[in-house]
Design a binder for these strands. Structure first.
Lengths: 189, 189
DNA sequence: GATAAGGTTTGACTAAAGTCAAAAAACAGG
DNA sequence: CCTGTTTTTTGACTTTAGTCAAACCTTATC
């Protein structure tokens, strides 16, 4: 089995039967995307759920004329605009490639078909959603209980190469501070 | 069928077969809890997932010597310390009754048994988790894009009776501001 | 209905982050 | 390697929220 593939990642969550694996492989497509490409635009309904085989990506939304980064995601992560993909409503967020990436994906209809054909596959979907829920909760806790400097340090720890991939403006918006503030935090060592 | 019961709420998400409904009813217990009772203490592994038939509840955690309210929840909500219940690790948060409540609940083993016996029930679990994920995301967005006053107004709108049930200290900690700041926001009308 | 405990408000001051503008540095293409 | 664009830093100033302490309410209880 190929390293860093979606199938392998799913198998690490819970073993999939050969039949499901076969069916997933049948629909999975692999694509390359270049830096700065937008793979989901706000206003569109998210149609595909992606797996990052290689690369670095962010999700962001705009409000009151500013950008807010929701997430950074790297190799091995599953990315999707949860709200739009699952509710089938227009997305409020954009998904943007930050470094040339190789993504595997399947579309909504195919995923629903998988759930229908293999009810037990809902277990995988549920576990992934639980994991992402916990991540989201951790983010809220960090925003409430850590200083801006501590959040910055934690981000660098989680994504060591991030300074080469994202701009300080993007990072600041993820940390919930202004770029000037981040610049001053960095200056102070 | 009883109004505001867990079974009814689950059926609104996706229709359950009579067999699953029967099995759930078999394990569901209903209990009354009084104001100030703690139904989950930090450090314990969360064993039960609750449905609020009636009442008002909050989850909070302690860090750096302060209380942080994670959630307020009312009638019709399903409550659980997601992290602890699903990972089976000690909870970092407490769940506290704010007004006398009637809760229905089942324990972890019984829920897993349900998932095992009825693989399609994972669909319900997945959809609920998706809903809660979206709520968590909305919370982060509110924290990033709304002023403290706007967050306060939104909370009052979501839970009109909250001022009679929770203290201003609890509300302030949910809004991510100090009690004194909330007091001043209220004074300025 | 006096008292204590819990909860809320106010005041004076401090700290942290935002704003706006401009300068400096880094980068990308021709 | 020059030039325009984007990104990052710096400065002066304002705004918002936090801190600590005291005073003031409200509620429950004896």
């Amino acid at each position: 089995m190929e390293a860093n593939s979606l199938i392998q990642t799913l198998n690490n969550i819970t073993i999939l039967s050969p039949a499901i694996q076969q069916e997933i492989k049948l629909h999975l497509i692999e694509e390359r995307f270049n830096r700065k490409a937008i793979i989901l635009k706000a206003g569109q309904v998210s149609q595909r759920i992606y797996f990052i085989k290689e690369g670095f990506i962010r999700a962001f939304y705009q409000k009151n004329g500013s950008d807010y980064t929701s997430w950074f995601m790297g190799q091995g992560d599953i990315i999707v605009s949860v709200y739009s993909f699952f509710s089938r409503k227009p997305s409020f967020e954009n998904i943007q490639i930050l470094e040339n990436s190789v993504l595997q994906s399947i579309n909504w209809d195919q995923l629903q078909q998988l759930y229908k054909t293999f009810p037990g596959f809902n277990l995988t979907g549920r576990l992934i959603t639980e994991q992402y829920y916990i991540k989201s909760e951790e983010r809220s806790i960090a925003l409430q209980t850590l200083t801006a400097k501590q959040r910055y340090d934690a981000l660098l720890l989680a994504y060591p190469g991030i300074l080469q991939k994202a701009t300080l403006g993007q990072i600041a918006s993820y940390l919930s501070i202004k770029q000037e503030t981040l610049s001053r935090i960095r200056a102070k060592v």
